[in-house]
Amino acid sequence: MARTLAMFTDTSLCIGCRACQVACKQWNELPMEQPEWTGGYQNQSHFTDKTYRLVRFIEKPQANGQLQWLLMSDVCKHCAQAGCLDACPTGAIYRTEYGTVNINQDVCNGCRYCVSSCPFGVVAYNHDTGRANKCTFCNDRIHNGLGPACAKTCPTESIQFGFRDELVPKAEKRLAKLKEMGYAGAQLYGADTNGPLGGLNAFFLLLDQPTTYHLPEKPLLPQRNVLVDSLLSVGSALLVGVGAVLAFRERGGKEGGDGHR
């Protein structure tokens, strides 16, 4: 397994220009889609099968009367423990040697289980192809020595691309700097490999609570429930079983045998 690649999206540097969103569409040749009225500049409320990078615009009036306009370029997190990957029954979703998570369109059968298994609501079902789509981490580019199109385009280096073990210290330095500049709410999201989902290979620097950015406070691996529910199912199986056995049992077997005696 090659050294893990990562994308670090530093929202404190984002100017919401959406060059990343367009570059993604262009490189991946994603077709046009109807924009949604979100009340502001954002053109889709969430990821779609045609939007893998989504720039979020969040207006947040402060207590002190000042206004905060939080800008964030959201993307698939390429989780170390990926709900989508574990959910996929066909093996279409796989982990590349770079640690990124990708969907093999030829194998995907459109069961949509991954769609409901991503804690971030990233994967989307494509009704035209009947398959699931999401950010590929520019799989074709990274396998040809290029960085992701979105990172490449970003004019302010708000999206940085590189080896995870190099990006994380960079991110920590940046966080420290912001803290000392007085950004109290600044925090890293998904940088820590001991954190939720074993860390996110696309991690973020946020200026506010994750939920403000439409991110789960503490994402959990959905598959954690499978074992418990399975055991409980066995339990209820035994109960109905006993019930039925009692119902059907031939009392004392006094009534005429059915031939096998």
Binding site: C17, V22, Q26, M32, Q34, E36, W37, Y41, N43
Partner: peptide
């Protein structure tokens, strides 16, 4: 707007840009 260019000729007719604003 960042997403559009001037009288819009060069952006309104480019789906990738034109779709960035609802209307």
């Amino acid at each position: 707007l960042t997403e559009h260019h001037l009288s819009g000729v060069m952006s309104r007719q480019l789906p990738m840009l034109a779709e960035l604003f609802h209307s």
